[in-house]
Amino acid sequence: MIRVSALSTAPLLLVLALLGSGCGGSDGASGGGNKPAGGPGGDAGQPTGPDMKIDAGTAGSISGAVKFEGTPPTERVNSAEADAYCHGKHPDGIKSESSVIGAGGELANVFVWIKKGITGKFPLPSEPVTLRQTGCRYEPHVLGLRNGQELLIRNEDETMHNVHSLPKANEEFNFAQTKKGDEAKKKLSAQEVMVKFKCDAHGWMSAWVGVVNHPYFAVTGADGKFELKNVPPGEYEVEAWHEKFGKQQQALKVETKGDAKLSFTFKEN
């Protein structure tokens, strides 16, 4: 990209040089473009180090729940009038999914993962993770997958959706799925928490994808609970991420065959 930017200025200068070659003789002017190299993201790619083998005899787990305290924000309702199909599915508008909170403050759609403490390589699962577009929403709204694992994106609606990822470390993609049954397989190759997905055609649609180097991540359900299984004993830092309320970290220790308990509480910001 950098080289081409320099290249593409050169011919323009050459035009000028040629325009200027008054009475014979011309000069090959050379153009120079400079641009800082390297994109954001730093060192991406698969982790190095030895292949990890988890000893089932010693491994423990991390589990817990995420709560929200305070008055829940009002949910925004978007008109879907511009798209007949979506309008038919949601005649009174589509609710935004940015904060799904249970009656007792259970916070769903929180991405919980081990941020620090895991090293080494883990075998990749061969089955893909699926992101569906159904009823003019992304399903699930928040999901996690391993970097390098296949992400299967499927359109289950009788309308056109456009899948547009907005990553910082990974490669951006932006493509349309024009009809029901369209499928695409993508890979995200660098650890990134989180990558936002949106649909350019339907402004209310969004999904968040956590891309992690190892298998220790989970998304809270409607009950606000999560569990990370098969964790080798050791000290870790666990992060909980919510699209609206931000991130929180907690350090903890997993004992041999122990179940470490964790709870996160998000507040109105």
């Binding site: 990209m1 081409v4 930017s5 290249l7 593409s8 011919p11 323009l12 050459l14 035009v15 040629l18 641009k35 800082p36 951006e172 932006n174 493509f175």
Partner: peptide, 29 residues
Amino acid sequence: SGFGKVPRGSPGSGMGQTLWLLAMALFIV
């Protein structure tokens, strides 16, 4: 273009558009 700090407008606004301009520059010459 999506290069440097400039955001990307559409898939074709990247390298394809640069090459387009390059070819057009040669054409103008």
